[in-house]
Design a protein around this nucleic acid. Structure first.
Lengths: 264, 264
DNA sequence: CAGTGGTCTAGACCACCAC
DNA sequence: TGGTGGTCTAGACCACTGC
């Protein structure tokens, strides 16, 4: 084994060593990693240094700690989320949130946490162009793959659109909620998404079973109807290491290339 | 949701306190934060605990350490990168990488690190559908806003397309490189982007002046010509906290809503 | 109960920076 | 040279887990 020498910090060297052992199969997913005191003795560094190395691996999403029990390898593959295809897939009779999970042979599960009328939070109100506190329908879901949490998804629809419709049911019926919106004269024809990366809040970390400081992907998805009114906003929060987002589009200006100076 | 929470770790409480003081203006950007020994004395916790709190703030991108000097607030606002508009902007005579920065009133700067013929790295070769090691043109840039690094961008073009063209120059001429590609019969008509979040490598952390463990956004941008050949791939690496990505698209299936059961 | 990881402290040495 | 943050150690206490 490579010696632990101080050109780099020891905890970084320990982390590198553990990463290697995880990749080459020295440690397997069915067993906990050696305990911190054990590694401390084996590598001749203090337990604090081992602990710091573990924290690195945790922030990378490589391992997961079960307190009082041990540290385990996280075996979840990366899921690809294709922004266009996932909405097209509503016609395949699958909940859009499940498409990507099934594609990997994993078992998706959706837990409905809340469906009902609430006052619009400020961020949602801004997006929907309504007053803060104005009534909206919220549909709050937690999504899992093989019982591991993969995503929090809260979707909001203005109450004047949703009131008294099937959108209040757990199962919104054939074709999904966008089909219901279409029947109500608000069929989405355009979507926008804004993606940011930030550290998880305490609540999110707890719900997604993340360690503090792990980054999450925050997606604000907006559906616009033909009158250019925002009719639904969905807020997605996902573990950063778990997802790969895919977007594609045609060049709107392919015809009009040469004009002025510039570089790409 | 706000159930009874266990008392938080001291370093988290310290971090929360410092966050608050940064936001309410107790600490300002022109002065270093109080030193760790000072805070240790003031708050009655050990220096280690202060240091751990500082590491949290660093991983959030809120502060930045200048070793041997002090810890400073990072004052960089978030930059929005609109996938479609940035390419359309090539016709405004601006380097596409600069559009977003100028929009915020910051001063962009592009540093060309390498322009030349290299063997294709494996990841690039796969995307371009060529052999690993086959020659490609690489254009490697580092982008800054107000002299703070904001992005690494490496773009690759198959050598059989780029050879002997203006694409080898630092300034590729009117309309940017996509205009040159169009003149060569490979004008991009479609783009795909894949976005992942991961921890920075050592090199990236050093170039982007990040702390270890800070997340980066990794974008693989591919330009396709009318024959559906990938003619350029650009790899972008950006500090995760610094950017907001925006995508928008029209619903390709807006006409064909109702079909089978499903939820969204 | 014994073993696990989470956290905290006191003390120490070091590399780096400004003066 | 003195102050800064980066790191490491030994020892300790705690909450949580499974047996």
């Amino acid at each position: 084994m490579a010696a632990i020498q101080p050109p780099k910090a020891q905890y970084q060297q320990v982390a590198a060593l553990l990463r290697e052992r995880i990749h080459d199969g020295t440690y397997t997913a069915d067993q906990p990693l050696p305990s911190e005191p054990q590694l401390s003795a084996e590598l001749g560094v203090s337990r604090q240094t081992i602990n710091r190395a573990m924290n690195l691996l945790r922030s990378e999403g490589l391992v997961r700690v079960r307190r009082g029990f041990g540290t385990f390898i996280r075996g979840v593959p990366q899921v690809t989320r294709d922004a266009k295809k996932r909405y097209a897939a509503r016609n395949q009779g699958t909940g859009a949130g499940d498409v990507e999970i099934k594609a990997l042979g994993l078992t998706p599960r959706t837990e409905y946490v809340e469906i009902g009328r609430v006052p619009a939070p400020a961020a949602v109100a801004t997006v929907l162009s309504i007053e803060t506190g104005a009534p909206v329908l919220v549909r709050r879901r937690h999504l899992f793959a093989n019982d591991e949490p993969t995503q929090l998804a809260d979707s909001y629809i203005p109450w004047d659109i949703a009131e008294g419709t099937e959108l209040l049911n757990r199962n919104v019926g054939r074709g999904g909620s966008y089909t219901r919106l279409a029947e109500l004269g608000h069929g989405p024809v355009r979507f926008t998404e804004e993606v940011t990366v930030r550290t998880a809040t305490d609540d999110e970390a707890s719900l997604l079973e993340l360690d503090g400081g792990q980054p999450v992907i925050d997606i604000t998805h907006i559906a616009w109807d033909a009158a250019d009114r925002p009719v639904e906003v969905a807020l997605h929060v996902m573990p950063g290491n778990l997802w790969r987002l895919r977007y594609d589009w045609d060049d709107p200006t392919a015809d009009e290339y040469p004009t002025v100076d510039g570089e790409v």
